[in-house]
Write a protein that binds this DNA or RNA. Structure first.
Lengths: 336, 336
DNA sequence: CTGAAAGCGCTAACAT
DNA sequence: ATGTTAGCGCTTTCAG
């Protein structure tokens, strides 16, 4: 049987309340008492029972991170950043993957496993504005990534539209005029794909380049494989192009591979830029230009907001919407 | 306030024990009673309080996965496999990263955060045989990866030595005779690095190729960056070589990048094979031959063993040692 | 500044 | 087949 507060209290010759006070850094304790209690804790190797604490206080010190897919390097790196930010605040992280679309997301969000956690970091993939009411509950939650407009929860995101505008403009500034966009979700408005397509179009308009729908390549799932396949299909159409904005790095890398197999030189024939600044982009051939979304900043901001909601559960402060900075990273794939 | 067993019991007109029985699939319940209770549960939207259950039963339904680093694609893919295997068994997974070496591993292993979980999946990085006694406790645990000989815990691993032997032999069978090994940990015997170097040497011996220590390239941390830097340093030495066995894919990809920058053609000048079969190997240029360690099989086996230990905490069955299958995957980097 | 006692929601003996 | 009851270990009023 494990050591309890009672054991410590008995050894230290105080009541369990005093021990509890010491553990929870309650301010008004005589130094001598604190010493005694700490000595007893050390001697017994006491560790608080987190289930009991959680039952009584309603706080477990665990948060959930809901992401589509860890195999996607962007989410692995984001998860890493979130876990480091969470640990710095004394929180543990349960990761849940939900590659199964809207139904699965809702299921997990409502499932019994969310009982255990104090709050949720939710990287929205499938839910849209019409589902915002599903989130209108008391659970502390911060949304990451896509934007649910006017949702009831705090939201941290990169500047999708601005980022895509900057990426596209970067290629245009190199003199490219037939810039393809890889990763569109036809009809989507509020998700990353929709916002990035919007930025792409803005950049074209600003440079006076006419929008050509045949340069927009839809890809539903943003994996390397899907980028490769979409590019393969696009090449068979013979649409001329000299630039490529991929809406994430994984797709860009898959597409680069296919283009080079087809004899296209990068950046000479096609200049390429991606999105996310995953580690791999530094070592691909050629190395990949990209938009760095400041994952660490996203993670830290999100954990801070969540912690605030956890600590002030009945503050009815309105949902906040924060956007992090981004940076263009120019590498070989868009070298001059 | 949340809905409790009492609320359900009151609505259904039964005692809380009956409700509890229904929830826990206790066999002897009259169908009519079960119906009533289930109706009440649905009507109220009752969800069990996992903290209370955990406090009372000593089981939380959460396991911990301890890995060095999620940014390493191998571990991200392993974590994905583990989470899918765990979810299939109704378990949640808390991931803890421990990039900080032996001290941090021991700290986390003993820390208060391990209180909450029913068991631990521990991908040993820094701990060696001399630390086995630190694991000699009652916590259900399955070790992944490196081998701690004669340790007190179950252990699931790939066949490190056999895999490296097969990888090396694969290059030798292509006629290469100056095969370098990337990723050695000088002096190590029981870790992946030591075992794989052993396999490398066995393969050379079997083919009658003399072992040349100048072809063994030490790399402490197995990231892409480290592989690239080690290869850059190796090239400046001018040691002739025509094959490369990298002890993981990340290092192989970093090294390939450096070799190609230096004008070496792959596989013509240097044939390359890695380890892990991470997703990226299919899309690198050239695509990378590798050893597939069957991550899904590792994950499922490990979760099964752990669950068994959790469900039979006082079975003092001796620690088991399971090795999964591996497969050579030949791609362009070692094409004939 | 410290102690006593109640009770969080659940499971598991035990009783019926 | 179902009800009663006693805690799991902790935090938290409330007293002193």
């Amino acid at each position: 049987m494990a050591i309890t507060l009672h054991d410590v209290a008995r050894l230290a010759g105080v009541s369990i309340k005093t021990v509890s006070n010491v553990i929870n850094d309650y301010p008004h304790i005589r130094p001598a008492t604190r010493k005694k209690v700490e000595a007893a804790i050390d001697e017994l190797g006491y560790q608080p029972n987190l289930s009991a604490r959680s039952l009584r206080s309603g706080r477990s010190g665990v948060i959930s991170l809901l992401i589509p897919d860890l195999r996607n390097a962007y989410f692995a790196e984001l998860a890493d950043a979130v876990m480091r930010a969470a640990r710095a605040k004394g929180l543990s992280v349960i990761i849940e993957q939900m590659p199964g679309g809207k139904k699965e997301e809702l299921e997990i969000l409502r499932g019994p496993r969310m009982q255990l956690v104090d709050g949720i970091l939710y990287s929205v993939l499938a839910l849209g504005e019409e589902d915002a009411h599903h989130l209108d509950n008391a659970m502390p939650m911060v949304l990451l990534g896509d934007r649910i407009f006017n949702g009831p929860k705090d939201h941290v995101t990169m500047q999708n539209t601005e980022g895509a505008r900057a990426a596209t403009d970067h290629l245009l500034s190199l003199g490219r005029r037939r810039v393809a966009a890889l990763g569109a979700h036809p009809g989507e408005v509020v998700g990353s794909a929709g916002l990035r397509l919007d930025g792409y179009q803005q950049a074209l308009a600003e440079r006076g380049v006419e929008y050509d729908a045949s340069l927009v390549i839809p890809v539903i799932s943003w994996h390397r494989k899907d980028g490769a396949e979409a590019m393969r299909a696009f090449l068979t159409k013979g649409v001329p192009f000299d630039g490529l904005v991929a809406f994430n790095d994984s797709m860009a890398l898959g597409a680069m591979r296919v283009m080079q197999e087809a004899g296209l030189r990068i950046p000479d024939d096609v200049a390429v830029i991606g999105f996310d600044d995953i580690d791999e982009t530094r070592y691909s051939i050629p190395s990949l230009s990209t938009i760095d979304p400041s994952k660490d900043q996203i993670a830290e901001t999100a954990v801070d907001l969540l912690l605030e909601r956890i600590e002030h559960p009945d503050s009815h402060a309105p949902a906040r919407d924060l956007a992090t900075e981004f940076h263009i990273v120019q590498r070989e794939s868009s070298a001059i």
